[in-house]
């Protein structure tokens, strides 16, 4: 790690506090270490099926969560581990869901792609590309119906941005002024297809223009830039001005899923991104350059995070598989759980 250089000057604003920077550093590092551990457990056969890692994209969710308040909702696709950790869900419960155990957030019945938290207003975890976009607008609809000022963060990728339902949703969200922030996590590849080969528009957020939805490009490798853009978008929504689009340019270091041989891009491209644009290194440099922390301080943070992640892995290995009776529960509800 030490060999990595940050060629870009960090965009440190002088008014960013030490505590704030340290929090972002920790939150992003937790996601990265967690995902590395998940990859490792997958390799050992403890996690099965599809597993989509968030490594490289950490600044997106950490920056946007910094712009959220209690009561705000979030919903995303199947690349969802980072979102759950960033909104405060317990790494143990997330990891135990990955291993398909009874202490997982969905009692082992959802898996990597399908987790939820009523408490943290996290509405999944959806496996059909683009389906979460109208769902997110529907969550925003429920808040508007009730007349509160909550906002829903609806995350989707550059691949999902070509689904028709996204534009059906843009139309209604604009028409009904729904308080929804559409976050396009543009990691430049829809599975293995580069954006230029799949998408007629260079800047995807401009697709909101014909619907009257404002939007902008955000540097997704810079947590402070993401947070600033998030605050602007959220203020727009809370003021009753309707939806807002953030096209966050980011990059995933790993394959689309664990079984992706990643032949659609060069190793050099990935390496260059890691070396020059890494969002965690960026904050690390800011912490060190700004004399907010010493190497030793950060080493201690690394150790602390590693312990949290290792504890989650241990927990996830030790938690028992769900009882066979669980097969037959949660198919029908007696009362709607989210109303209880």
């Amino acid at each position: 790690m030490a060999a990595r250089k940050t060629t870009r000057k960090s965009s440190a604003k002088s008014n960013v506090s030490k505590d704030e920077l340290l929090t972002y550093y920790k939150d992003m590092l937790l996601i990265r270490r967690f995902e590395e551990k998940a990859g490792q457990l997958y390799g050992m056969g403890l996690i099965g099926g599809f597993c989509h890692l968030y490594i490289g994209q950490e600044a997106v969710v950490v920056g946007l969560e910094a712009a959220a308040k209690e009561g705000d909702k979030r919903i995303t696709s199947y690349r969802d581990h980072g979102h759950m950790l960033a909104c405060g869900m317990d790494p143990k419960g997330v990891m135990a869901e990955l291993t398909g155990r009874e202490d997982g957030y969905s009692k082992g019945k959802g898996g990597s792609m399908h987790m939820f938290s009523k408490e943290k207003h996290f509405y999944g975890g959806h496996g059909i590309v683009g389906a979460q976009v109208p769902l997110g607008a529907g969550l925003a609809f429920s808040d508007r119906y009730r007349g509160n000022d909550n906002v829903t963060f609806t995350y989707f990728g550059d691949g999902a941005a070509n689904q028709g339902q996204v534009y059906e949703t843009f139309n209604m969200a604009a028409l009904w002024k729904l308080p929804v922030v559409f976050v396009i996590e543009n990691n430049q590849y829809a599975m293995g297809t580069a954006q230029a080969r799949s998408t007629s528009t260079e800047d995807i957020h401009t697709r909101g223009v014909p619907f009257g939805i404002p939007g902008e490009i955000v540097d997704g490798m810079d947590v402070l830039a993401v947070k600033a853009a998030g605050e602007k978008a959220v203020a727009h929504c809370r003021a009753g001005e309707g939806p807002y689009i953030l096209e966050v340019k980011t990059y995933r270091y790993r394959g689309h899923s664990m079984s992706d041989p990643a032949k659609y891009r060069t190793r050099e491209e990935v390496q260059k991104m890691r070396e020059e644009r890494d969002p965690i290194e960026r904050v690390r440099t800011m912490l060190l350059d700004g004399k907010h922390a010493t190497e030793d301080d950060l080493k201690a943070v690394d150790k602390e995070i590693k312990e949290v992640v290792n504890a989650s892995a241990e927990f996830a290995k030790e938690s028992p598989e769900p009882a066979l009776d669980e097969l037959w529960t949660d198919i029908y509800a007696e009362t709607a759980p989210q109303e209880a």
């Binding site: 909702k73 919903i75 509405y123 389906a131 976009v133 109208p134 769902l135 997110g136 607008a137 529907g138 969550l139 925003a140 609809f141 429920s142 808040d143 119906y145 028709g164 339902q165 059906e168 949703t169 139309n171 209604m172 028409l175 709607a336 989210q338 109303e339």
Partner: peptide, 18 residues
């Protein structure tokens, strides 16, 4: 609007929202 896929999803999201 005449947009079944979209408004059905919005309806389901509103139900998730209580």
């Amino acid at each position: 609007p005449i947009t079944e896929h979209g408004f059905t999803g919005i309806g389901v999201g509103a139900a998730f929202g209580g």
